[in-house]
């Protein structure tokens, strides 16, 4: 064996100890016999390749400790003698990082699941006492309206309102938590068909707003139909809710293929969203308007975001305040059946 200077440092041998010795002294003891056989096999037809592809190789230092390595082999000739050049790389750092990364991913996955479970249990178990509070305040209102002074009645009304709001929040939280725990298996889903159904469902509101909805060709994608329905429905409901009173509402739904994704776009000519709020609208329970102006808890777009992310897509908004809003979301075309 001939060995480089770095090699002596890596293994803790002096040059004199390595030169002329068998390469096997650098192989952990347990693998030496097998290594000798493999070495003879390699010598019969030496070609450049990594050693032990897919295996986690170790080498042994002079002091008996081992280290994780990667080895590239190639055949050559030195002074007319057949030789093998083995380039040994110490990959301790990388192995350690890989291990850390794996542990982190597992930890993150666990804490994520725990959080979802927590949100689900919290919202579910919160309903029980809330139902009692709500029941008795409503009963109080039923039985004592007209028998108390106006101040007492006002207090009761505020309590009833507060309880109703909290119920709505808990229901939304539950719906949000269920997106992952109750998500269904992805199946080929015709977005055009699904959008047609949403429009049918919203027809009374669309008629009332005297709005027009134009739907261009939409693809079939792999997804959870009931969740994708929620996305389309939430975005359309928002367009209807935040329409301008200066012009009749017009909504356009279209799709375009971009590399491996479909981009679905829903455009309206409503009141629009100021640029500084474009990220906030996707956060749960964030609202840009007072309840008197526009009712709602601010969960709709957070649900859309979570659903689209569960489908490995992205959702974002483009808007010119007072001119209108375009929501775009992507869905992978990988499972797409239609062109």
């Amino acid at each position: 064996m001939l060995a480089s200077e770095q090699c002596t440092q890596l293994f803790g041998y002096g040059v004199a100890e390595l030169v002329g010795a068998s390469i096997d002294i650098l192989v952990p003891e347990a693998g030496r016999l097998r290594h000798a056989e493999l070495r003879q096999g390699y010598m019969r037809s030496p070609r450049a390749r990594p050693m032990g592809a897919g295996l986690q190789l170790s080498a042994q230092r002079k002091n008996g400790t081992t280290l994780p390595v990667e080895i590239s082999l190639s055949g050559t000739e030195v002074d007319g003698q057949k030789c093998v050049v083995a380039i040994v790389r110490d990959v301790s750092d990388r192995r350690r990082l890989e291990g850390d990364l794996q542990r982190l991913v597992a930890e993150l996955k666990r804490s994520n699941e725990e959080l979802e479970q927590f949100a689900y249990i919290a919202s579910h178990d919160l309903q029980e006492p809330l139902r009692v509070v709500s029941g008795y305040t409503q009963l109080l209102k039923r039985r004592y309206t007209g028998k108390l002074d106006s101040e007492a009645e006002e207090y009761i009304d505020f309590t009833v309102e507060g309880v109703k709001r909290m119920q709505a929040l808990i229901n939304d939280l539950l719906a949000y938590a269920r997106l992952t725990t109750r998500g269904r298996e992805f199946k080929p889903t015709d977005l055009g068909q699904l959008t047609k159904q949403v429009i049918m469902y919203l027809a009374p509101v669309i008629d009332e707003a005297k709005a027009t909805v134009e739907v261009a060709h939409l693809p079939t994608v792999l997804g959870d139909a009931s969740q994708l329905t929620q996305v389309i429905q939430n975005i359309l409901s928002n367009a209807l809710k935040f329409r301008s009173n200066e012009r009749p509402l017009c909504i356009k739904i279209s799709s375009v293929r971009k590399l491996d994704d479909w981009i679905i776009s829903v455009e309206d000519n409503g009141i629009g969203i100021a640029p500084e709020y474009r990220d906030r609208i996707f956060v749960a329970f964030q609202r840009l308007h007072t309840r008197d102006h526009y009712p709602g808890n601010g969960i709709g777009l957070a649900i859309c975001k979570k659903i689209i992310e569960r489908h490995h897509g992205r959702i974002w908004v483009e808007s010119a305040p007072t001119h209108g809003t375009i929501f775009h979301f992507t869905l992978p075309a990988s499972g797409s059946l239609a062109s």
């Binding site: 809330l130 139902r131 709500s134 029941g135 409503q138 009963l139 039923r142 119920q167």
Partner: peptide
Amino acid sequence: SKPVDMDQF
């Protein structure tokens, strides 16, 4: 399911 709203109940 027990309704939360008393009127519904």
